[in-house]
Design a protein around this nucleic acid. Structure first.
Lengths: 160, 160
DNA sequence: CTAGTATAGACAAGGTCGTTGTCTATATGG
DNA sequence: CCATATAGACAACGACCTTGTCTATACTAG
């Protein structure tokens, strides 16, 4: 369109590419026994794996990792526990900590996600070429931060 | 990390690339007299330009274009009007329609956005090469929908 | 050992932003 | 002329986030 010049296309395509992959991931995940998974949940699972201590992750840990309050993280944890993705535990070294770890159901979702992403990647490679796809990821690495910073994307999108 | 295998990287890099561009856009926009702009607003402006009739866009038009209810669109419009980006009008052919059009302030934001995006694009081109950048956009075009579907991204991100 | 500080978690109150439902006024088309 | 569709205003409500407060537990410095 006339008011949609060159400059806008790059960010738009990046967003659309992300959305396409995530939408197809979740369609397929739903077919494979995970109909309740949301785009956020994969990130939450990864945060729970990396943010916690030896005995699991607390709501406060998760909140820090995700850049939300511990109350918000606690509600997310409650929901994921209700869906069977998290299991409560405790830290024998700190009686205050109410920890959570991933259940086998969550690991199943993660493994399936990984496989689905691989398949989607292969589809993209067929369309645009394996070398071009590899170049794309390589190039994006050069212009994006290497550390996966706080995943506060949902709130960030509407942030003031 | 060990639990962050190949498959996850492509979508993550696309999202990070988008975030990097949008974050830098808004930092710069804030410096140039638009500190209140949010990531969503650019999309809203574009929707208002394209979704309306001859005399402007109504809340109902905008809601359809963005994939939200007309009430939600109405609240967004109220805020943007308050910020000086929208001006109310009416449709002489339809007394029901309360239309809105972009103010010069909004066009200023759009033009600055365009320029900033061009600059960011140039920076990327310096880093990864003009040809590689062009290839990236070209390739993304092949794997993403050509029509900019409903921009319901914020809610989509957390959607059930 | 004790006293002060920091942190986990529970609870409550409130904000923002979305939703649906209802109502009236205006268009539109048989 | 009347039935149907749609714009916009208003109200109620829900999801999800926030801040603030409180108690229990840990940690650290004398």
């Amino acid at each position: 369109m006339s008011s949609d010049p060159q400059g806008f296309e790059l960010p738009l395509r990046l967003l659309l590419g992300f959305r396409v992959l995530i939408d197809e991931l979740h369609e397929e995940l739903a077919r494979q026994g995970h109909p309740q998974m949301r785009p956020m949940h994969g990130f939450v699972f990864q945060a729970i794996m990396r943010a916690g201590g030896r005995y699991g992750t607390t709501a406060a840990d998760l909140g820090r990792a995700l850049g939300v309050s511990k109350q918000a993280a606690g509600k997310t944890i409650d929901m994921l526990e209700g869906l069977g993705y998290l299991r409560p535990g405790h830290d024998p070294d700190d009686a205050r900590r109410k920890t959570y770890t991933l259940t086998p159901h969550a690991y199943d979702a993660l493994e399936r996600s990984e496989q689905i992403f691989e398949d989607l990647r292969d589809q993209w490679a067929e369309t645009i070429g394996e070398d071009r796809l590899r170049a794309m990821v390589e190039d994006l690495r050069k212009v994006t931060p290497s550390d996966v910073f706080r995943l506060d994307t949902p709130q960030w999108f509407n942030a003031p």
